[in-house]
């Protein structure tokens, strides 16, 4: 499992370089996400472009990550594949996270909003 981090406009972008976030790696994913976000900026964007499959354990790990963030931090998601998007929609977790079509859109939206 691999998480790659970059910063852009004072936001932290974490790219999940893995084909699946499933029960086999959910706990490890949560731990590594927490480490990646620790002490980071207020805005964290998780790019899921490489992820083809997520199960309920993977979804739980992303929710758990958000709950582990510092009070001033917020987790957003970008580039959900059809399969991943479906899991967020069915469980209505798409109402909990800001979800962007791409990481670029995550920053375009901010410009439009301000």
């Amino acid at each position: 499992m691999q998480l790659e981090t970059t910063t852009r406009n004072d936001a932290l972008i974490i790219t999940a370089v893995m084909p699946r976030i499933d029960a086999a790696i959910a706990i490890q994913f949560k731990d590594e996400m927490r480490d990646a976000c620790d002490g980071g900026p207020a805005r964290v964007v998780l790019d899921l472009a490489d992820v083809d499959f997520i199960d309920s354990s993977g979804l739980g790990a992303i929710v758990a990550t958000m709950k582990l963030l510092a009070p001033d931090q917020k987790l957003e998601l970008a580039t959900l594949s059809d399969n991943v998007d479906k899991v967020f929609r069915l469980t209505r977790m798409d109402s909990v996270f800001a979800i962007h079509s791409t990481t670029d859109a995550a920053f375009t939206n901010i410009i439009h909003a301000s």
Partner: peptide, 13 residues
């Protein structure tokens, strides 16, 4: 956020 469920999605799905 602190009260969001982290599980229980499996049987729902």
């Amino acid at each position: 956020v602190d009260d969001l469920p982290e599980g229980g999605f499996g049987w729902f799905l």
